[in-house]
Design a protein around this nucleic acid. Structure first.
Lengths: 238, 238
DNA sequence: TCTTATATGTGCTAAAGCGCACATAGCAAA
DNA sequence: TTTGCTATGTGCGCTTTAGCACATATAAGA
């Protein structure tokens, strides 16, 4: 808290912060505060005013839409490849959806105001944000198709891969219950699907811990949506 | 073609063009060409280079994601409230998805280059585009949830309402077959759903013509997604 | 060790929707 | 009028998944 602004050499695992150099970075440094992000922490709920943007070094945010009767579905995820709260930079600071920490981690946060100013400059931050929105549009569109057309088992595989990409280690702290909420599916259906993935030797799990044991196999089994989304984000850093 | 650039008083039903005044408008006028948009015309296919942006006065574009095995689902629609090809303004001119004219109409098109320049200016066009992207993110997210959680009949109602909003008159040129593709559903399932909406007195249809006979009833029957999306776009012009 | 909360296993019924086959009906061109 | 194409109606079996209910197992804490 007290040593909020990193000085001198700055380093981060966040792809966006990492891509900034010179003045583009210098202007932001004073506003970056390190934060710990515990599992379950809600960054924004629907219609909340966005005050901070979060740049993760590790961990994963679930971006969730909420239906009229309280049902939810994840429409996208955010990890070190991006930052949360982009919509706050688009002329209105209210959050479109619910965003919460799905996998714990750490990163930096910055008040939204200096970043709004940055968006008015045709600089590196604006450019990266635009690219990120492009990838975000691709992700959310592909997820929409996936939600409609693919089976729970494939969607679970895809989702575990996306988690695995953004979290250090092979052991993911995830319960069937939570995965079900994210996938917009029934808990028993997820248990069914997870059981099948386990039978195929792709994962093992026990009481809230899912271990990815055969990453290539999981990729092969997942629907093409995983690859399409990953490819879109790979272009960000290419 | 020859009288491409409207001069003097300019008027359009397109909300974005309409919102521009003074210099912000003047800079674009030389690039605007009137276009007719016949049903079925493909504006961009996946990975196509985006050369023109389309500003509709009337009609509707379907934004469609395409799966590995050729299956498709609509992930969003565009009418006079926006313009097509926003992703071309985000650092890469390749199209993320397939975009085609679902309901015929007319409008203007402009080469992408002057609009890319415009995006580097903190002017009215950039501002409107940002707001539009915000609404687009909201639409596509809500559609994703809808695709996952709501029944075909509700989704059909929602889709017909979105068509109705963007097309002049109550008679929509739509076949069950085409609606099925857009909804990512079976043709027979759409026939089933359409039959039920007709039984309820909300629509009538025959051979590629769907007539909305009870608009308020259709709104009441549709899932909340319609209202949420409409509300988000209403903020654009508020 | 005992207790308790939570995570997972499993069995059942039912609904939704797919996928296919085939019938019929309306429209248009010859 | 005839022909043919396209749009819609309909029936049926099948898969997936929802939605329950309840059993069991594991971890954490008293």
């Amino acid at each position: 808290m007290s040593t909020s602004a990193p000085t001198g050499v700055f380093s981060s695992n966040n792809f966006i912060l990492n891509s900034l150099k010179g003045d583009d970075l210098e202007r932001l440094l004073p506003y970056l505060e390190p934060v710990e992000l515990p599992q379950g922490k809600m960054l924004y709920d629907v219609d909340d005013r966005i005050r901070y943007l979060y740049f993760l070094n590790n961990g994963m945010i679930s971006v969730v839409n909420v239906g009229g009767d309280g049902v939810q579905t994840e429409v996208g995820v955010i990890g070190r490849e991006g930052f949360s709260g982009v919509e706050g930079l688009l002329g209105d600071v209210s959050s479109i959806n619910r965003q919460m920490i799905q996998l714990p981690g750490d990163g930096y946060r910055a008040r939204i105001e200096p970043l709004q100013d940055e968006m008015l400059r045709a600089g590196a931050f604006q450019q990266m944000t635009h690219k990120l929105m492009r990838a975000g549009l691709a992700q959310i569109g592909q997820t929409s198709l996936c939600n409609r057309l693919h089976k729970n088992e494939e969607r679970l595989a895809k989702w575990l891969l996306m988690c695995h990409d953004r979290f250090d280690g092979d052991m993911l702290p995830i319960t069937h219950e939570f995965a079900a909420i994210m996938l917009g599916a029934n808990r028993t259906s997820v248990t069914q699907a997870a059981g099948q993935l386990q039978d195929k030797g792709l994962i093992t799990y026990s009481r809230g811990k899912v271990r990815v044991t055969d990453r290539p196999g999981l990729e092969a089994y997942s629907c093409e949506c995983y690859r399409k989304i990953a490819a879109e984000y790979a272009r960000l850093t290419a």
